[in-house]
Amino acid sequence: MTETFSIRKYLRDLKLPFCLGCGIFTVMNTFLRAVHELGHENLSKFVFCSGIGCSAWIPSPYFIADSIHTTHGRSIPVATGIKLLRPDLNVVVFGGDGDIVGIGISHFIHAARRNLDVLVVMVNNMIYGMTGGQVAPTTPFKTKTTTTPYGSFEQPLDAARLAVTAGACYSARWTTAQSNELKESIKKAIKMQGFRFIEVVSQCPTSFGRRAGFKNAGEMIKWFKENAISIEQAERMAEEELAQKIVVGEFIRRKRLTLHETVYEIIRREEGKNVED
């Protein structure tokens, strides 16, 4: 690090659309700080993809970088196209829980399965925030939302563990209360190869906190701090005890052959054959 971090260096001169107290500010700041600490003076080695939802606005149009804003849930398929065309670039997907593991969950699973070399940062605010707070596949059991006024009656999805099962090379979960761990995790993930997934449990005071009984963003962050436990701690706890907890940490870190490595190897091999013929 030769110079101090300035977020402005990576951002277009535009007014950000996020609500006061939104966790996205932390995610945006932490991501760009990680990029800075890795020595990237700009974002020219990155391409960003996002779908629909508040988190999709993190890169687009605010980052001074190439970005594609796609339809709801389809950022990972678009990222697949970009990565296969330009394997030399860091392809990063930003999305919310509704985008990545709601409407777009099949793409998430298949990208991890085929080990697509992209980093997916999922801001999990546990709600459909942009449309005003409807129940999502990640909403904690019994939470009041606009479409579950008496509390959600479905069990939430554990995205970080799903990524492990589906074949991801890296999967971690943090909350916005652990920005330092998050930053180190992002740095590690950017340097790694393969399908990398980071879930950030994030506060949405406007659409989630308000109905769930939190007075402000600070109360939500306090809730994260008090209820975030490590994977090791979680292993010693009973299922009922875990129900209200947020398990944070790295769920997997491993090496697997990536999709573009396999694809390009086949292309090289078959082209070589033609030359010999």
Binding site: T131, G132, Q134, T146, T147, T148, P149
Partner: peptide, 16 residues
């Protein structure tokens, strides 16, 4: 139903 602007307040009111 699934929420989408500007339909969302239909499904919210129906949920209620």
């Amino acid at each position: 139903a699934y929420p989408i602007t500007p339909q969302t307040s239909i499904v919210e009111r129906i949920a209620e």
